[in-house]
Amino acid sequence: MIDLEVLEGNLKNNKLDNCYIFAGLDEMLIKESVENIINTVIDETFKDLNVIKLDGVSTTFEDIMNACETLPFMSDKKVVIIYRANFLREKTDSLGAKLYSQCTEYIKNTPSHCILVLYYLLNDKRENLMKNKKIMSLDKSCTLIKADKLRGEKLYRKVNSIFERKGKRIGKVELKFFCDSVENNFDIIEREIEKIISYTQGRDITRGDISLMLPNKEEDDVFDLVDYISQKRPEKAVDLINELLNKGENMMLILSLIESQFLMLYKIKVGISEGKTKEDFVRELRRPAFVCEKLIGQSKKFSYKQLQQCMKLCIETEKRLKSTGFHKKTEMELMLIDTVRV
């Protein structure tokens, strides 16, 4: 298994393999690396004729095999990309298991004229790729690439290049503050940069601008926590709440944010039933469009009754936490387990 930096070095030295599998959290970083592979082997003039993209959710083995077996046009190589290849996940349905089994055999004998690229996104930052036996079993058949988040100077340089590409300069201190404050996901980073540039037209970016425009990181953690509840994964929810508490986060604040999240999801469900759109929620909630889109998706995972019960559990837990006779950390864990059972 290699990382993105090693892949970049291999491509510069024209060291290519017949099959690559990417896995990571940041789809934009993965797409950039896939584009680098394409640019290394295919002339710009013939890209449209020699690059085939297949949706991993709906594709069949026959689609994949036909795409790979067809000879390239006016080129030595062609590239077949299977994006969102969720059949590579550790747990899939029967169709996904069958497609994985078929692809496993085919990957070992990928035609020499074809570079097959597959990628899927990890569920969350706590998912351990090394524990995915399906992925690791392919390590000898193809090149596995762990698309890790950029850190430190690499992150600063990459983010600064986006500001420059958009025609805006940002000071070194402000750049570091922005990188330390924003979620480490380049799809989100790009959107937040656009917001800040629009807000600061004609003047320099300040730390105050960044603080004002960026969403609260605690809210992101609470979104993940509620998502675990919707997925019926109490162990993940408990791990996250303990991680937050161990970092010194205020317990009552976290509980308040969880309750507010359930209330917001309830209001969104009511709004959807009344015919409201994403744009309506952007205005009402004063959140970016992509955040509202995520909230709408999350609201659909709960029924009205479930959300009412979850809010009730939050209120009851708050009462107990204000009493000195209860172990507060245990109360939070029990509340999360109860919300999953609702």
Rank of each mutant, 00 (worst) to 15 (best):
E44G: 08
M65C: 10
V41H: 05
T45E: 15
K77N: 13
E44Y: 09
N39L: 02
D26I: 02
E32V: 01
S58N: 12
G24I: 00
L29V: 00
L25D: 12
D26E: 08
V51P: 11
I30G: 03
I37W: 06
N36T: 04
I21N: 13
I21L: 15
I30V: 10
S58V: 08
D76A: 02
A23V: 15
N36H: 05
Y20Q: 12
K78N: 07
D17I: 01
V51Y: 04
Y20S: 09
N50V: 01
E35P: 03
E69F: 07
D17E: 15
N36P: 02
F22Q: 07
L54N: 10
N66V: 02
T59K: 08
N66C: 03
D17R: 09
E32P: 05
F73D: 11
D43P: 06
E69C: 05
I37V: 15
L71V: 11
I21A: 11
T40I: 00
M65Y: 12
E44I: 13
S33P: 03
G56P: 12
D55F: 14
L49M: 15
D43F: 03
E27G: 04
E35Q: 14
G24E: 00
E27V: 09
L49V: 06
A67C: 02
T59M: 09
G56F: 11
I21P: 12
K77C: 09
N50K: 04
D43T: 06
A23C: 15
V79G: 14
K53T: 14
I64E: 07
V41W: 06
D76V: 00
F61Y: 12
D26F: 04
E62H: 08
I64F: 00
G56H: 12
K78Q: 14
D17L: 05
I52L: 06
L54W: 07
D55Q: 12
V51N: 08
M74N: 10
E69P: 02
K77H: 12
V34K: 06
E32G: 00
K47A: 00
L16Q: 13
D48C: 05
N66R: 09
E32N: 03
T70W: 05
E35C: 03
F22E: 05
N50G: 03
K78L: 04
I52Y: 07
I21D: 09
C19N: 03
V79I: 12
E69K: 10
E32L: 00
G56K: 11
L25Q: 14
V51T: 10
I64K: 05
S75H: 06
C68G: 06
I38S: 07
M65L: 11
G56C: 13
I42L: 11
T70H: 07
V34G: 03
E62T: 14
S75T: 02
T59Q: 06
L71W: 06
V51I: 14
I38T: 08
I38R: 10
I42W: 08
I64A: 05
V57W: 01
N66H: 04
N66I: 02
L29W: 00
